[in-house]
Design a protein around this nucleic acid. Structure first.
Lengths: 237, 237
DNA sequence: TCACATCATCATGTCATACAAGCTGTCGAT
DNA sequence: ATCGACAGCTTGTATGACATGATGATGTGA
C-alpha cells in the first residue's frame, strides 16, 4: 500500500475549514457559512459539505443547531481526564473520591426519582451477589461496582453513567487498598458496607430522593474517612 | 426499530455503533457492516449512516476505504467526554446541567470548608463584575462563569476545577439560550441570579458548608427548571 | 403603543435516487 | 497456470425533495 490515494473531497473540505477556524477566519462563537454558501464557494455537493461539518462536529470543533447553523466552539475544549499515575498517592485517590461523592449522591437522588422496576431488580441482584460473595469469602469488588453502576443507570442520564464508568475504571486497580485487613475486621467492614448499600437501596425503592442522597453520602464519606484513617494510622502509630 | 427522536438520528446511530465497538460486537480490525446493511438494520437513510460513520472516522474510531469498507481501529484510552453535537437538543443540555448540579453543589460545600481569604476576594470580584455588567446591560456570561470557576478553585481539588472547565466550555455556546427574553424580564432574571450568587457567596464566606450546598442546588435547579419551562412553553402553547 | 398570534423564509435534518470510482473474485482466453 | 476483462460488491459524490426547527416581519386585537 505504498501509494497514497487522493484525498477525498470531504477530507479536503474538512481540513480547509479547520484551517480557517485555526486561523481565526471563523472566530470562536461565530457561525460558519450556511451549507448553501459552502456549496457555492467550493463547488461541491451538499453531501460533501454536510460530511465535512459532521466531521468537525465529531471532533468537537463546531456544534450545529437545526434551523440556525454551525457554531465554532472553544478549541481549548480538552476532555476531562485524570492521570492514572497520580492515583498512586492516597491523597489523590481521596480527591477522586470527593468527586465521586458529588456525582454519586446526585445519582442516588435522581435514581430514586426515576427508577423503573427493572432497575430495582438489577440493584437487588447486585446486592444479593455481594452478600453471596461476602459469605463465601470471595471478591466483592464486582458486585459492589455493579450496584453503584446500576444506580447510575437508573438516573436515565447517560453522562452520569459515563462519568461513573470513567472514575470507576480508574479506581478499580486501587481496590486492593481495602485488602489490608484481618479477616475478622474485614468481615465486619464488609457487613457495614452491605448495610449501607441496603439503606441506599431501600431509599431508592421507596423513591425517597433525599434519603437516597443522604445514605449515599454517608456511604462514600465513610469510605473516604477509612482512607484518611489508613494514612493517619501509618503516620501516627 | 428502537430509535427515538430526542437526538438527531445521526447522533443516535453514531452512539450505537460506538457502543457496539466498545462492547466488542465489532472487534478491532473487523469490518463494519456495509452502509446498505446499516440502512436495512436501522431503517434510516444513507445520509444518516454516512454521517455517523463520518463521525466515527473523525473520532479516530474507524477508517474507511473506498470500495472496501470501514474498519475498526485500535482504540486508545477513552476519557470522559460529552459529544458536543448532542447538545443541540435542549434535553441534552438539561442532562449535562444535572451533572453540573451534582458536581457544583459538592464544590460549594467543599469550598465553604476550605476557602482561603484570597478565594473570597476573587469571588467577590466576580460578583462585582457581574453587577456592573447587569447595570450596563452587558454580557454577564463571563463574570458568571468566573464566579462558578472560583468556587471550584476554592475546593482545592483540581478534579472539580477540571471537570467544571470541561462542562463549562461545552455549555458556553448555548449561553445564548438564555438570551430569548425581553429586557424587563431579562433584568429581573439577572437580578435573581445575582441574589442567588450572593447567597452562595455568603455561605462560603461564613464557612457554612450545608448552606452553601443548599444555595448552589437552589441556584442550578432553578436554571434547570427555566430550561424545562422554555420547552414546555413551546410545546404547550 | 404594546403584546401576541401568524406566517414567510431560511437554516439544518432526513430521505431517495443516481452515478462515479475503487476493490475483489470469477471466468474465460491464451 | 497466467493474465485480462468483467460483474458485483464497496464507498464517494451529486442532486432534488421534503421535514423540522428558528427567526424576523407582519398584521391583529387589546
Amino acid at each position: 500500500m505504498g501509494l497514497q490515494r487522493r484525498e477525498t473531497l470531504t477530507a479536503q473540505l474538512t481540513r480547509t475549514l479547520q484551517e480557517r477556524i485555526a486561523a481565526g477566519d471563523y472566530p470562536v462563537g461565530s457561525k460558519l457559512p450556511s451549507e448553501q454558501d459552502l456549496i457555492d464557494e467550493f463547488g461541491v455537493s451538499r453531501t460533501v459539505v454536510r460530511e465535512a461539518i459532521s466531521s468537525l462536529r465529531a471532533g468537537g470543533v463546531v456544534a450545529t443547531q437545526q434551523g440556525v447553523g454551525a457554531f465554532v466552539l472553544n478549541p481549548g475544549n480538552t476532555p476531562f481526564t485524570i492521570q492514572a499515575a497520580e492515583l498512586e498517592v492516597v491523597y489523590e485517590v481521596i480527591a477522586v473520591l470527593e468527586l465521586r461523592i458529588g456525582v454519586e449522591t446526585e445519582c442516588a437522588a435522581l435514581a430514586a426519582q426515576r427508577r423503573r422496576d427493572d432497575h430495582i431488580v438489577s440493584l437487588r441482584g447486585a446486592l444479593d451477589r455481594m452478600i453471596t460473595a461476602i459469605g463465601g469469602g470471595e471478591d466483592t469488588v464486582e458486585p459492589d461496582l455493579d450496584f453503584h453502576r446500576g444506580i447510575a443507570e437508573a438516573t436515565g442520564n447517560r453522562h452520569f453513567l459515563n462519568l461513573f464508568e470513567y472514575l470507576g475504571t480508574l479506581l478499580i486497580p486501587r481496590a486492593r487498598l481495602r485488602a489490608a485487613y484481618r479477616p475478622a475486621e474485614m468481615d465486619s467492614y464488609l457487613n457495614r458496607i452491605n448495610a449501607q448499600h441496603e439503606d441506599i437501596f431501600q431509599a431508592i425503592v421507596r423513591q425517597d430522593s433525599d434519603a437516597a442522597r443522604a445514605a449515599m453520602r454517608l456511604h462514600l464519606t465513610s469510605s473516604r474517612e477509612r482512607l484518611r484513617a489508613s494514612i493517619d494510622g501509618k503516620h501516627g502509630g
